[in-house]
Design a protein around this nucleic acid. Structure first.
Lengths: 215, 215
DNA sequence: AAAGAAATAAGCCGTTTGGCGTATTTTTAC
DNA sequence: GTAAAAATACGCCAAACGGCTTATTTCTTT
């Protein structure tokens, strides 16, 4: 029997999770907490627990802080984050805190179950979009982000695609080939990106793109 | 229809992969290669390809080198590594090379299919043990010191000055003004930098310069 | 159904870049 | 004191880029 604790402040989501896991006979939900502090209190009573499904956004004490504390005191307990938000900071901080997995709330019951099994087997479970973020973080070690509250420039999907190709050093012709566009269109996209970012050449654009967290 | 290319030197494993994927009607195996060089040759003929399943250990050109080259020229093509070895260096180097996923060869057909779908949707696919490795790498950012043992290219003092100006997005004329040079000289310096770094435009140069810890 | 945004594409024109050869002067190293 | 490396500079040419205008098509959103 796999002993699981749920930590989730939203009552309905907590019930939904219970429901999802109820189909799997080898999992027993030992207890539930509404925030990090409660979770820690529960563990202090009795820490015979295999795995914790932990929300991130919670009042009193959030999931990342709780993970940090629990992992320090009970490193053998696996912790899988379950959250709606997958922004870089959350992912990175959760990993830093020692999370063994990171799932999005939309994840299906079957996948959550798999994640639990795989995590207990020593692996890590991640929703694909999270996995992609970890890869990007690994490739580009820029975790030192200062809280920049200036509003960021937005680019369209296509513009970002073009931007990504530009950032590899490709020339317009090659970008056009790759995206099945004419060079005219690529040029137009670049022109629009330049206007939005107030850049006048590729390097300026890449700098501004970084500042705006577009790449 | 999802167009996939297999790159795998072992004939039987290649056939096994084909077999595994044949159950999924929306996947078509467009071509197969026995090593990296062959794969690149195929793409140069026709790069209308969605995803490549790439072995790592291969003669002539291994999968990591091939991934590096393909990702530079065709960044929109997704590449998922499929290998028996999951040692840290392989994982880290594959990520550095730009791989979008990393599966072990024991992975079941259904999982490979899921991985393909998820990768094309912009996510990343990883076997759980690989995911765990990436988490560990992220938590302990050691690899950036150790993984780079290649000797670095050296630039002259003046070349570095020019490089620094280039990195701000300045044009030759402005650099010349700032450094009290003629544009011809600036051009010559840039030409020399290009040769040393094997770059052919400014963005490539900046990438290579970063790799060589020049900026 | 209409309005608005996004994506597509072409043409024009001047500027900039990248690649090549050549050549002189200055600095550094042996 | 000479050889090698670095820095300086010019010219030529084709390719690529950046800026501007115009226009059609395809999505969204209301």
């Amino acid at each position: 029997m796999i002993k699981v604790i749920l930590v989730e402040d939203n009552f309905f989501l907590q019930k939904a999770l219970e429901e999802k896991l109820s189909n799997f006979s080898d999992i027993v939900i030992k207890d539930s907490a509404q925030n990090g502090e409660e979770a820690i209190a529960i563990l202090e009573e009795n820490h015979v627990v295999d795995l914790i499904l932990m929300d991130i956004e919670m009042p009193v004490m959030n999931g990342i802080k709780a993970t940090e504390i629990i992992k320090t005191k009970y490193p053998q307990i696996k912790i899988v984050m379950i959250t709606v938000f997958d922004n870089d900071d959350n992912v990175f901080n959760a990993i830093k805190a020692g999370a063994d997995g990171y799932l999005l709330k939309e994840t299906k019951a079957e996948k959550i179950y798999e994640a639990i099994i795989e995590t207990l087997a020593g692996g890590a479970a991640m929703s694909p979009s999270i996995a992609m973020k970890t890869l990007k973080l690994l490739k580009n070690p820029i975790p030192f982000e200062t809280a920049n509250e200036t509003e960021l420039v937005e680019l369209s999907t296509r513009e970002i695609e073009v931007l990504e190709h530009l950032s590899k050093g490709l020339k317009n012709k090659d970008i056009a080939d790759n995206l099945f566009l004419s060079t005219s269109t690529v040029k137009k996209h670049i022109e629009n990106i330049y206007r939005k970012l107030q850049a006048h050449n590729r390097i300026e654009m890449l700098q501004k793109a970084k500042q705006n967290k577009l790449i």
